[in-house]
Structures are given as structure tokens and as C-alpha cells.
Simulated assay, not measured.
Amino acid sequence: MKIRVGFGFDVHRLVEGRDLWLGGIKLEHEKGLLGHSDADVLIHAICDALLGAANMRDIGYHFPDTAGAYKDIDSKILLKKTVDLIATKGYRIGNIDATVCAERPKLKARIPDMQETLARVMGTDSDDVSIKATTTEKLGFTGREEGISAYATVLIVKE
């Protein structure tokens, strides 16, 4: 058995007039994340971590923001495609550990929904998807509520 780890990071600006998608679910908030797709920073960080672990470059390489096919796309579709990509090299997900950095909205109550949604998309058990939420204690762009960031570490396995 071969195991590999990967790390991913993403950030998007908060703006008015957009829906807020995090972890594959829509959240009620007065602002949403700006991006070519639905700008789900958590999913994008997970995709980058998975691709990195499999040595398959990054999300921008596979799903460029210059391609019209990805305009406003649901990031769950990108995540499913990413899982399929790493499978071409014989890898499956071992586990995911991710952190979302946001002052608001408070995410604690929605984390189980995110875990279930992401596990379903990736074809894994929700117990293999750890999601944590934190603030930056009102410091930096996150603290000023200008954006949201996410970090992800993954373990992938080849039998």
C-alpha cells in the first residue's frame, strides 16, 4: 500500500450580490464569495490538496478560470472530477482534514451538513471528512470580513 499527503489553500473575496457556498452547501449570509465558479473556498482547497497529493498540479490547471465551461459551475462538480482524476492514477481518499477561516457566518451548526455533502460527492464516509472552523480574531482580511480562506490536508491511498 502506498500513501501520500497533500495540502491545499484557497481564498476568495466576499462581495454583495453573490450566494455564499461553503463545503458544497448554500449558507444564508448578506455576502457571497467572488470567483469564476461558485467560489467555494473549502472545496477548492480540498481539490488542490487531492491533486497535489497525486502529483497532478492544481485546480487552476485542470479547471482554468479562463474556460467558459467553468463559469459559475457548482464546485461539487469540480470535486467529483478531481476524485475521478486521482483515481486514474490508482488513488482513493484516505481522509481529509480541513479548516475554514471566517469571522461570519458562524459555521459550527452547518459542519455536519458539509461533511455529509462532501463525503457523498467524493464517495467516502463522512467520518473521513474533518471540517473545522475558526476566526482570525478580527485580524487581517478575514477579520475585516473582506474574504474567507480555507486550508485542507488530505491522505490518499493506492492499494
Rank of each mutant, 00 (worst) to 15 (best):
R144G: 13
L50P: 00
L139W: 14
T136R: 09
L78Y: 03
T99C: 10
N55L: 05
G94E: 01
A150K: 04
N55M: 02
D128M: 14
G60P: 01
K132D: 08
A98P: 01
E28M: 03
K138W: 11
K89P: 00
R57W: 05
A87F: 01
D113M: 12
L107I: 09
P105G: 11
S75T: 03
C101P: 00
D74T: 00
V100W: 05
A67K: 14
E30M: 11
G140Q: 11
R57H: 03
R104K: 15
V121R: 04
K71V: 14
N95F: 13
I148W: 08
G23S: 08
V129W: 03
L79G: 04
I111G: 09
I148K: 12
T82D: 00
V121G: 11
A98G: 06
E103N: 05
T135S: 13
D48R: 10
P64D: 02
E116D: 13
A109N: 12
Y151W: 14
G143R: 08
R110C: 04
T82R: 10
D38F: 03
D65M: 05
D113V: 03
C47A: 06
I96Q: 04
G35L: 02
H36F: 15
L51S: 11
A87K: 13
E30P: 02
E30C: 01
M114Q: 13
A98I: 07
Y151G: 08
T134R: 14
G23V: 14
A67E: 15
L85Q: 09
K132G: 04
G140N: 06
I59V: 15
A150V: 12
Q115I: 15
I77N: 04
L33K: 07
T153R: 09
F63S: 06
T135I: 09
D72C: 05
Q115V: 14
I43V: 11
R92S: 07
D48E: 08
G23N: 02
V15R: 12
L27W: 00
G147F: 07
D48I: 10
T134L: 08
T117C: 15
T99R: 09
A39C: 12
D97W: 09
E145Y: 10
A152Q: 06
H44Q: 06
G147A: 14
K132R: 15
D48Y: 04
Y151D: 04
A119V: 14
H12M: 06
L20V: 05
E145Q: 15
T82G: 09
I59F: 08
L34H: 09
L79R: 01
G23Y: 01
L20F: 01
V154W: 02
P64R: 10
T82M: 05
I131E: 01
V41P: 05
A133D: 10
L22S: 03
E145R: 15
A54F: 00
M122K: 05
F63V: 00
K138N: 12
V100A: 13
D127A: 10
I96S: 04
V83S: 10
T153S: 06
T135V: 06
L14F: 06
T124I: 07
H12V: 00
K138C: 07
V154H: 02
L34R: 13
E145L: 08
N55C: 02
I25F: 01
G143D: 11
A152T: 04
Y151F: 14
H12Q: 15
I73R: 06
T66N: 13
Y70I: 09
K81Y: 07
L27D: 03
